[in-house]
Simulated assay, not measured.
Amino acid sequence: MSVATAARVRLPLPPVLMYHSISPSREPDPHRLRVHPDRLDRHLRLLRRLGLRGVSLTELVRAADRGAAAGLVGLTFDDGYTDFCDSAVPVLQRHGMTGTVYVVAGRMGGQNEWDTGPRFDIMTADQVRAVAAAGQEVGSHTMTHARLAGADPAVLAAEVGESRRVLEDVLQAEVASFCYPYGSYDQAAADAVRAAGYDNACVTGDYRPGDRVTLPRCYVSPRDTRAHVVARLARHAVRLRHASSRD
């Protein structure tokens, strides 16, 4: 099997949880992005109680390559908000876990201008380096948080390829993981991710095709209790079996 063909084969992973902002703020949150740090702490305590360990997406994928992903759960945090550095990293470290934070490379030091409503600060280059030094994975979330489905080749090259180059320049290290903003992708976008040299990429809830650059995730809402997390873990297993049975 060629490398290109292998990249398109379904990769059945354990669940991958999808967070955004981790903050104690009580400001309006119409897009349901903000999970309180205490709630994240309860979620991670639950994982430990279940005998599970949260890891970055690249660690999870490479463990799966070795047949060693049992007992792991992927933890991802979209957009690269400063509260990941301030609020999420201490909780992750307390539990001996890691995650992948997906940074909008062209908005470092800025805000989430792609959203209507509340503004969230995005990490600076120095904060991105600090997060990586703390053992967390930094992945790419494009240059501008653009929707990639239907984008022309020049846009794909800029958003997918240039964002990797920018982050690798900041980190002086490989950036292996990519995340499609809004979960918006098509075959051309997935091909652009492969061409840019990423090892893996994740979407939002789609379980097909579910290959190395279209890995599904489970959205975690600001009000999710431990029972909700258990339900999401169980639902992942059901959806994965269903998708695999249709291949």
Rank of each mutant, 00 (worst) to 15 (best):
D121Y: 11
R34F: 05
H141P: 01
A231M: 07
P90Q: 10
N200D: 04
T124A: 11
S221F: 15
R226F: 06
I22A: 12
C202I: 09
A63R: 04
R147G: 10
V213K: 01
Y182H: 12
R119G: 11
G110A: 14
D38T: 04
L40R: 11
V166L: 13
P24G: 07
A105P: 00
E137L: 03
A68P: 03
H36D: 14
S140Y: 08
R239S: 09
G109L: 13
T214G: 04
G80W: 03
Y182A: 13
A134L: 10
V35K: 02
V91G: 05
A6Q: 11
G135D: 05
M143P: 00
T5N: 01
G117Y: 10
V3E: 14
R212Q: 01
N200P: 08
D224Y: 01
L13T: 02
F84A: 08
Q111P: 02
A196F: 00
R8L: 15
P28V: 05
A158H: 12
A134S: 14
R232H: 15
R48A: 15
M97I: 04
R208E: 08
H31E: 08
F84L: 09
V35Y: 06
R53E: 15
V104D: 11
G96T: 06
V160Q: 06
E168Q: 07
L156G: 10
R164E: 08
V73P: 00
D41G: 14
P24R: 09
S184D: 13
L148Y: 08
L17I: 04
R226E: 15
Q136I: 11
S245W: 08
G106A: 14
S221P: 02
S56Q: 01
R232N: 02
D83Y: 10
L50W: 10
D78I: 05
R129V: 14
P118N: 06
R241I: 06
R48K: 13
T142G: 09
I22W: 02
R10D: 03
R94T: 14
G96I: 07
V89G: 05
D224T: 01
R42M: 11
R147P: 03
V230E: 14
V160P: 08
P222N: 05
A154K: 12
L46V: 10
R226Q: 13
T214F: 01
A146V: 08
L52D: 12
A243Y: 08
H95S: 03
S56D: 10
R129G: 08
D211I: 00
G117N: 12
R45G: 14
E27K: 15
R49T: 14
V170W: 13
E59R: 07
V166N: 00
G205V: 10
G135F: 02
N200A: 09
V103L: 06
T144W: 02
Q93L: 15
R232D: 08
L13Y: 01
A151N: 07
S163E: 03
D38A: 12
L156Y: 03
D86K: 12
A189W: 09
L156R: 01
A237Q: 15
L233T: 10
L75S: 03
V101W: 08
P28D: 10
C202A: 12
A234Y: 07
G197D: 08
G135A: 07
W114V: 04
S244P: 00
E168P: 02
